[in-house]
Amino acid sequence: MRRLCVALGAIALAVSAFAAEIPPSDRRSGYDFMSRETRAMQDDDTANPGMLSVLEGGTLWTRKAGGAGKACADCHGDARTSMKGVAARHPSFDAARGRPVNLEQRINACRVDRQGTPPLAYESRELLALSAYVARQSRGRPIEIAVDARTQPFLDAGRATFHRRQGQLNLSCSQCHDDQWGRSLAGNTIPQAHPTGYPIYRLEWQAVGSLQRRLRNCFVGLRAEAYEYGAPELVDLELFLMWRARGMTFEAPAVRP
């Protein structure tokens, strides 16, 4: 009896630690919290500023580069078929590095290993353009993150970061995005933090930006030390967020306020 009680207590604790996770049927994209005008901007390719980046990425896709004199298209052919669904399953495990890599890192790995060119800087115009172009090929597809024994520890690390109180304001991501979504933070509706549309065009930035840029914004908001671009902790967090959004529809390039 005593042992049962202890076991039940442990289960109750474990459940309460994550009790706040949003049930699948209640999950909503940031899109659903936006004004009608902003949604219309995302939906219309001729009005969506992210499409300029996609177009530029299309040009880069076929441009020969580096010592190997090869373009992305020389290996991957028509991105509309070869890249379908790819962004919707990143971060994904990279055997060579022994850990998950995000889309930008995958693109840079191709540049370095196969094209013989230096990697593109995070948030550079070209890297955003190439990732926007690749991500566009997953629009309308469900997010599918494969979790197995190799990726599980990284997923767990990302989840721990999401639930860790941090910064001078001592808040966790989960306290806002699991518990308070839909409420108003000084006039901004708190979304559920599903990374369904990255890279995005953000009105506040007046620019296209990556998921890591968005995540770093929230760290800064907590007055916490933001991880550097490409840091394993950020990739693990991306992995957890994409897994948390599994089954949701990919919508890059999204527009966000």
Binding site: R164, R165, Q166, G167, N170, Q180, F219, R223, E225, A226
Partner: peptide, 17 residues
């Protein structure tokens, strides 16, 4: 969720500033 406005201990990864 209300921050502690006059406490500096027990906080994690506070930004340098």
């Amino acid at each position: 969720i209300m921050p502690a406005y006059h406490r500096t201990e027990g906080l994690v990864r506070v930004a340098p500033a």
